[in-house]
């Protein structure tokens, strides 16, 4: 590898591993893993099926510091079975969220990259995701901010797409994808006429970071650089908490009802962007991040 010392090198969030992301996101040297790989808590179900296991079952959890403040973190490894949630993987995340209620960190950071339920242990995985949701909402009810980060190769789908939208705030890069049923699942089940999963441009404008930001589902859109994610998290830590109150949920309810009323008949993201008042909706996918944010802001989409 060539020597790049002295040259600013950005570290792609998209390409980094679950562990690599934590190294660059948190204060240097601050990460302390909980139930790390030496504990060998691997999936008994995968073993039964003769499938390769991972020593951390595809999720890294622990304590760290961000800008000096104590945080709890979880980072899903998309490379291992698409980040899918099995019994152990899910229990690690649920346990972390429960630990937060005792420790009261400044925030819980969830680096989400997952296709949802791990189909090799489907029943246990589905229940595990439900347990994650309950533990996450209990942590929020205890007044702990939960911040989700999305931007990996495998996106954030299935039950973890619901988990993501249970967070207080989400930070995404342009490459990040967030949804419920992945395009390939829809294509396989409903046919290519419903969703052509091989049409990358269509996929990105339907579930990609820019569209999610414009809809107001994620609060911050950043460049694909771990330093940018770090800056965004620090900024998010300064934001007021979204309580789980009747008032906040009624506000959310109204927003979702309006979205359905206004854009429920749109056939493509570009129609929604036009309705939002973006001048050249067809150009949106081509804009670099600063220009995009400027255009979005002019149309009244501030994210946060």
């Amino acid at each position: 590898m060539s020597d790049l010392s002295g040259v600013h090198r950005s570290h792609s969030y998209y390409e980094a591993s679950a562990r690599g992301r934590l190294t660059h996101l948190l204060d240097a040297g601050s990460f302390r893993e909980l139930l790390g790989p030496t504990e060998r808590l691997t999936s008994p179900h995968l073993e039964l099926l003769g499938q390769p296991c991972a020593f951390d079952d595809g999720i890294v959890i622990g304590r760290g510091r961000l800008d000096g403040r104590p945080v709890l973190v979880a980072s899903q490894e998309g490379g291992f079975m698409g980040g899918a949630v099995g019994e152990v993987h899910g229990a690690k995340l649920t346990g972390l969220l429960e630990l937060a209620v005792h420790e009261h960190p400044a925030a819980i950071l969830l680096l989400l990259e997952s296709g949802g339920v791990r189909l090799h242990e489907a029943n246990a995985g589905l229940i595990a995701i439900s347990e994650i949701i309950r533990a996450l909402l209990a942590a929020r009810a205890a007044g702990i901010p939960v911040i989700g980060l999305i931007g990996g190769i495998y996106g954030c789908f299935g039950g973890m797409g619901i988990v993501a939208r249970c967070c207080d705030r989400l930070i995404i890069n342009e490459e990040g994808r967030l949804g419920l049923s992945g395009p390939d699942v829809i294509e396989t089940t409903m046919g290519v006429e419903e969703f052509d999963a091989s049409d990358r441009a269509l996929v990105w404008r339907t579930v990609g970071g820019k569209h999610r930001f414009l809809l107001g589902e994620v609060q911050q859109l950043v460049a694909d650089d771990l330093a940018a994610f770090r800056t965004a998290v620090v900024e998010a830590l300064g934001q007021p908490l979204q309580g789980l109150t009747l008032e906040s949920l009624e506000r959310e309810h109204q927003g979702l009802a309006d979205r359905l009323a206004n854009y429920g008949d749109c056939l493509d993201a570009t129609e929604i962007w036009a309705a939002l008042g973006l001048e050249n909706p067809l150009q949106v996918p081509l804009l670099d991040i600063p220009t995009f944010l400027q255009v979005a802001s002019q149309a009244g989409r501030e994210g946060a």
Binding site: C166, S181, T189, L249, H253, L256
Partner: peptide
Amino acid sequence: LSRRDELLGINGYLAHLVKCLEL
């Protein structure tokens, strides 16, 4: 399973329901 539901952010709608139940 539909592209239109994904376009609208169906995961956020289901998350909203989940949050209302938690409330």
